[in-house]
Design a protein around this nucleic acid. Structure first.
Lengths: 166, 166
DNA sequence: CTACATCGTTAGCCGGACTAACGCAACCCA
DNA sequence: TGGGTTGCGTTAGTCCGGCTAACGATGTAG
């Protein structure tokens, strides 16, 4: 029982994945995203963080404090899930949550000094992880890749035929 | 109350998503895959199919009959989930499942004539869907994109640092 | 014969995306 | 002044895909 030989290994000899399957962009995307997600999640976990943490902190750092709803819109995190994320961040002293005196429905979220420090660390971590993620591509190709993805995503979020998602 | 305006809309004026966030390849990937998955799933649903159906049928068509375990390895579907997929396919008369006389642990799965017909239909459907998916890219760019993705995925599945996934 | 590996199957966990509903506060306008 | 509507924060819960654990039945190797 050598560890990894469960179900979906690289099909070795004689158990090839059909081409029409392997070539489909949709499938490549799912596959790659699965890898990517794992890489990132595990990497961030080692820094006691999750990607949502980064998203919120980055948003606060770049566009200043905001209500939870605002952050939700900026980061694409569902407002239902925002609560939990902010709790985690608050626990760690990375953000402050205070009722807005001007609008008592709101909480105003601010980033703390510690939060800023943490954000810097995460930025570094993510840079490294992306380096690993894109390892096989030259710098030019990486740009190409990001550029193509951006255009695709833009297109599909503009006149969004479907609901939200990020 | 115009339908879609829940949480994660395109942030309009003043609620911008931070750049360092938007540019990260990992994030672009997740975003794009989310869109892609929806598009594909919904499209296939209209043909009374799911992507696993396509995977199995394609595998059967290209590499001939096989046990469930074999199919699992070829398609990347966990053997735990294979059962369900094959049930669905069998219900629809697209595959046959018969005990292997040579090894009574096994079921031999074969594609039926109907299955082949269905597969052809699905191929068409998927072509169209991918056309929509990659709409903003020129043919050359689409190749580029697929090519880059393939290289990335290859790299990360070769000396897989992590377990399986497809 | 014993030990171990493989196959099909059931059950269940987990994380992420998403919906529903509620209470509360603010805003609109009449 | 007040009633309706809209936005906010929160809780709970659904759904789905990826994945693990375990089991009985069968096969294979020593």
């Amino acid at each position: 029982m050598n560890s990894r030989a469960e179900a979906a290994d690289m099909p070795h000899d004689g158990e090839k994945t059909p081409d029409r399957l392997r070539r489909r962009a949709s499938r490549l995307l799912s596959g790659m995203t699965a890898r990517s997600d794992r890489l990132i999640n595990e990497g961030l976990a080692q820094a006691d963080a999750r990607k949502w943490h980064y998203a919120v902190l980055a948003s606060l750092h770049e566009h200043g404090p905001g209500s939870q709803a605002t952050l939700s819109r900026r980061t694409g995190i569902y407002r239902s899930d925002m609560v939990g994320v902010l709790n985690e961040l608050a626990e760690r002293g990375l953000v402050g949550r205070a009722p807005d005196p001007d609008d008592r429905r709101r909480n105003v979220i601010t980033i703390t000094a510690q939060g800023r420090r943490h954000l810097r660390r995460l930025d570094k971590v993510l840079d490294d992880l992306h380096d690993e993620l894109l390892a096989p591509l030259t710098p030019a190709e990486r740009d190409q890749f990001v550029h193509l993805l951006t255009r695709l995503l833009d297109h599909h979020t503009r006149q969004a035929p479907h609901p939200p998602t990020s």
